[in-house]
Design a binder for these strands. Structure first.
Length: 626
DNA sequence: CCCCCCCC
């Protein structure tokens, strides 16, 4: 092996061009080193580690990243230190002022040699950066071309790269006119996109599309949506704001393929993406999108299904793909998000598969509302989900993200297998649901799900519920012994959903710091603290306005009014509220009070006991012993 | 320019 086996000077050309199609073609280089980069925690999911490669053309060496879809070349041992490769597709990205090559496609043309060929020097030392001139062009559209211009004009380049310089400029100039999205433009791999070039067209499949979301904050308000895009090199998230929503939202359909160009490429905020890409796309005014009917070369969505009975092996909060037969689906209901205080629509599905387990999956928002409108949902269809969140409520549960996708009766092998199984056997099978917390509950086990959650007060304490990081959920059937009179309610902001404490101001109005305004009247809201008991012990529970209103038999405002009229009437109400039995759904969670860690038990729902039903349940539990 | 993904 000698220098002549390498494409000398190729690397200087490769790193300086923003347009590989007009730069050196199929250079042969030597691999000087391969180093694994640990996948970051945020992106550690499915894409795994990546590899940094030092590449030499005998004259220069440069750092390069191996495209993630070529990772297996290293892992299989095919790509080794000191072997020679022909690079058939690459991109050159500028990252924090340094140019980094991305090797998108390559093949090994010679087995490892004894040592490095020649005495290559760092390409960064050979190419002088222009004195303080940033590579970004002007605003928006001009950005991408600037590198090409700089290369052929002012940039001082060493002799090694002289051969390619003219070609770089000429290739770019010879491009067909810019009006058409893609005419004559080579299709660019998603993996090769970077913020420093905008002369690209990608051909990508929409793998997921979000709802339109509206936002309003200090910086303004607007609407947006996002899609995930896939080609055979990788995936990228794309977002459209405001006008882009109107232009593209209805056009972009899940599973369809589009030619997309003239969009902005930004550094990805990886904490908000489950895709493996340094960058993400924003649709702009200049962005052009065109549906592409010839989509055979763009990969289909790939699923990696986890069987329902294997969900326990998936860490909570990870996403996964799940397929199952829809055993049943629930009514549309509404919860109020604790974080946003906004109401959210939800609907729960129950999925089953051959593993004799069932799992609940929650749909949100429009997905929840529209679910019954899909064809076939009442005929126990097979449904495939991609990218659903695994939760640990009740053992394991599933929940849609906005980036998750749901396909009813997809035409894939797993779907047909499930259909066959269900129609033959599954329809008559029994499925064990993931049941609630602990799993211990021996005595109550095997009964209805709500019996399994039930604890005696002694068990709540013995089992140290709420002592771990995550909250524990349980219910107790207990009698109200005492309701604390102090701080039974507070003066809350009457503004819808605010609920912050308001204080009297100088003008006799009620001031809310959060809303930054005053109100004539506060809204009174309960903050209940009640001692409840069952046969095994007593416990203090905290309750909020809705449940407390139920316990007290009147609103906090009414109670306050009553108390102002008559203190004895007020205490009478408290006495009447006591000695009643409820089933309390509770949440146990650590918090700190006066710097002391303690477990706080919060009522999430209090329901009066239906004694006939409760008696029947107890009889069933006893019968289960026989 | 969002960044929430909720509840039991």
């Amino acid at each position: 092996m000698s220098l002549n086996d390498l494409t000398q000077g190729a690397i200087a050309q490769m790193v300086q061009t923003s347009d590989p199609s007009s730069s050196v073609q199929n250079p042969v280089c030597q691999i000087l080193s391969i180093k694994k980069i640990q996948a970051s925690a945020a992106s550690a999911s499915s894409m795994g580690d990546r590899y940094r490669i030092i590449l030499s053309d005998g004259v220069n060496y440069a750092q390069a990243m191996l495209a993630s879809q070529k990772r297996s070349m290293v892992e299989s041992g095919e790509l080794e230190k000191h072997c020679l490769v022909r690079i058939s597709q690459y991109a050159s990205n500028s990252v924090q002022g340094r140019r980094i090559l991305i090797l998108l496609d390559l093949n090994v043309v010679h087995q490892p040699t004894a040592d490095r060929i020649g005495s290559p020097t760092n390409v960064d030392d050979s190419i002088k950066p222009e004195g303080g001139v940033k590579q970004e062009g002007g605003a928006g559209g001009a950005l991408g071309n600037s590198n090409v211009g700089n290369n052929s004009a002012g940039r001082t380049t060493p002799a090694t790269s002289a051969a390619g310089a003219g070609k770089v400029g000429g290739g770019a100039a010879g491009r067909p006119g810019g009006s058409s999205v893609h005419a004559g433009m080579p299709i660019y791999p998603i993996e090769g996109l970077s913020p420093y070039q905008n002369r690209w067209t990608i051909k990508a499949r929409v793998t997921s599309k979000s709802d339109i979301r509206h936002w309003s904050n200090q910086r303004g308000e607007g609407k947006l949506f996002s899609v995930n895009l896939l080609d055979d090199s990788g995936e990228i998230k794309a977002t459209g704001f405001n006008d882009a929503v109107d232009r593209f939202y209805s056009m972009l359909q899940e599973n369809h393929v589009y030619l997309i160009s003239k969009a902005r490429v930004n550094i990805a905020k990886k904490q908000f993406s489950n895709l493996q890409n340094e960058y993400e796309i924003t649709f702009e005014n200049s962005t052009e999108i065109e549906e592409c009917t010839d989509a055979t070369d763009v990969p289909e969505v790939k699923y990696e299904f986890v069987r329902i009975n294997e969900l326990e092996s998936v860490e909570p909060n990870q996403t996964c793909d799940v397929i199952g037969v829809l055993d049943s689906y629930g009514e549309l209901s509404e919860i109020v998000s604790k974080a946003s205080q906004r109401p959210v629509q939800k609907r729960e599905l129950t999925l089953v598969d051959q593993g004799q387990r069932s799992v609940r999956l929650t749909l949100w928002g429009k997905n929840a509302e529209n679910f019954p409108n899909h064809a076939g949902v009442d005929e126990k269809p097979v449904i495939a989900f991609k990218g659903v969140k695994v939760g640990d409520f009740g053992g394991r549960s599933l929940s849609m993200f906005s980036s998750s996708t749901m396909l009813i009766n997809p035409d894939i092998t797993e779907s047909h297998v499930l259909r066959g199984w269900f129609d033959n056997d599954g329809a008559h099978a029994q499925f064990q649901p993931f049941t609630n917390a602990g799993g211990a509950g021996g005595a109550m086990g095997g009964g209805a799900a709500n019996m399994a959650e039930r604890r005696t007060i002694a068990q709540v304490k013995d089992e140290n519920l709420g002592m771990s990081e995550k909250p524990d959920y349980f219910n107790v059937r207990a009698t109200v012994v005492y309701i604390k009179q102090e701080n039974l309610y507070y003066t809350a902001c009457p503004s819808d959903g605010c609920n912050k404490k308001v204080t009297p101001d100088h003008e006799g109005n009620w001031r809310c710091e959060k809303c930054d305004r005053s109100y004539e009247q506060p809204e009174y809201r309960y903050i209940l603290s009640t001692n409840v008991a069952d046969a095994t012990g007593q416990i203090w529970l905290s309750g909020f306005n809705d449940d407390a209103t139920k316990l007290m038999g009147m609103s906090a405002g009414e109670l306050h009014k009553l108390r102002e009229e008559s203190e004895s009437e007020f205490t009478a109400v408290l006495h009447r509220a006591a000695n009643r039995m409820y089933t309390f759904n509770c949440r146990a969670k650590m918090d700190s009070f006066n710097d002391q860690a303690r477990v706080r038990y919060t009522i999430s729902r209090a329901a009066p006991v239906d004694f006939a039903k409760a008696g029947a349940e107890l009889a069933d539990a006893i019968n289960a012993y026989m």
